[in-house]
Design a protein around this nucleic acid. Sequence first.
DNA 1: GTTTTTGCACTGACCAGTCAGTTCAAAGCG
DNA 2: CGCTTTGAACTGACTGGTCAGTGCAAAAAC
Lengths: 230, 230
Amino acid sequence: MTSATGPVSSDVAGAVRINGMERSTTATGGGSSRREATRQKLYEAAVTLIAEQGFSATTVDEIAERAGVAKGTVYYNFASKSVLFEELLRHGVGLLTESLRDAAEQTDLAGGTKVDALDAMIRAGLGFIARYPAFTQLYVAELWRTNRAWQSTLMVVRQQVVAVIEDVLRAGVANGEFSDEIDVPLTAAALVGMVLVAALDWQSFQPERSLDDVHAALSRLLQGRVSGSR
Amino acid sequence: MTSATGPVSSDVAGAVRINGMERSTTATGGGSSRREATRQKLYEAAVTLIAEQGFSATTVDEIAERAGVAKGTVYYNFASKSVLFEELLRHGVGLLTESLRDAAEQTDLAGGTKVDALDAMIRAGLGFIARYPAFTQLYVAELWRTNRAWQSTLMVVRQQVVAVIEDVLRAGVANGEFSDEIDVPLTAAALVGMVLVAALDWQSFQPERSLDDVHAALSRLLQGRVSGSR
DNA sequence: GTTTTTGCACTGACCAGTCAGTTCAAAGCG
DNA sequence: CGCTTTGAACTGACTGGTCAGTGCAAAAAC
């Protein structure tokens, strides 16, 4: 149905400092210059609009209006509409991979197996998607486009996500936990797809279900506990 | 723009078989075959352009030019750009579900299990994607869009695909082949995602690999033969 | 003689990007 | 202090261009 396009909270985590220029200034050390706040507002406005309508169908005027700034401000802060989009992509994927890597690392520290790590990453992935549904939508929609200006950004951003999973798979093969016959890149892609599509479906069609519930279903599928009745 | 090599020279005049539409023409009945051929050319032109650039970024002039047809002809055959797109979606999804259903049915007739049926559907899905990569790309990109004119078409078209898989899963649960604890809709969505993303990755980044190869990798993943070394 | 296609000019809306001018907040100064 | 200066940040009307969709007479196909 409506799917309510989730809130997309801010949380910049890590100052991006593009076009530096803070001159002498001092202050702001802890984080928020006026400019950074504006950029953040623009990200938030853009992510929901582009997720709903797509990049081309979203106008800069709309983005500016939703962010509560003038159109000129968009161009003061970003070189162009596509640059805004590219930086948005990088920003979001940064958050995602960080979250995935954290999950894997925590599992390691707790002495878990690689299967546990994979499971934790699925959970982290679901958590991310639940928190940033609009970004996820946009990511899926644009990821396989060809012939686009931001082609290279797309590649980087795809590889970043897949690589995190591939690392865990490879480690699992190395320590004998996984069959050495598995196809690491393909399996990683399949896992990403599984989580992505299941989560988008969850958000769109059964948003009342809990993360635990969805996680359990995917876990069961992953571990082959589907066949074999109980 | 149109005056390059002279208008109306259909290079494929004799054999319209590219999107496998000619099978269903007879069944659908009605409509002259000339008109049908024009519509087919427009579908083919539109599907690649939209897959590459997205719906909004693709112009009607481009579609007409690639199809080797005058712009007026587009509007003689379709009420609008969006209608053309919607019918394209329905058309493509029809082919996909038909192929999936066939696969499941064949397995049944051959006395296979539901696991076999699922496996056959994965293979059929991969085959479809290999044959119509552009359509698949477009499908993924538009499927989770909200706030769009063709919202309802999207719903129908999504449900059609998922339903085929859900049917098999439910049958498997009924005959005890699958655990009755599986979450049918979610598992179906996850399977779709797994195949979709793995296949798009295959097409984009390792196109030299064979379908059998990719199929084997997904089969292994599905049947939990990932963990458990050697 | 009917259906379909063509070619092309036209319109009205829409939109990315620009730029001359305005506001803001902090630093300098008496 | 309060006043002035400075430059970054922001504004919004404007421009040059694009594009979906129309209208129609004539040609082509059937």
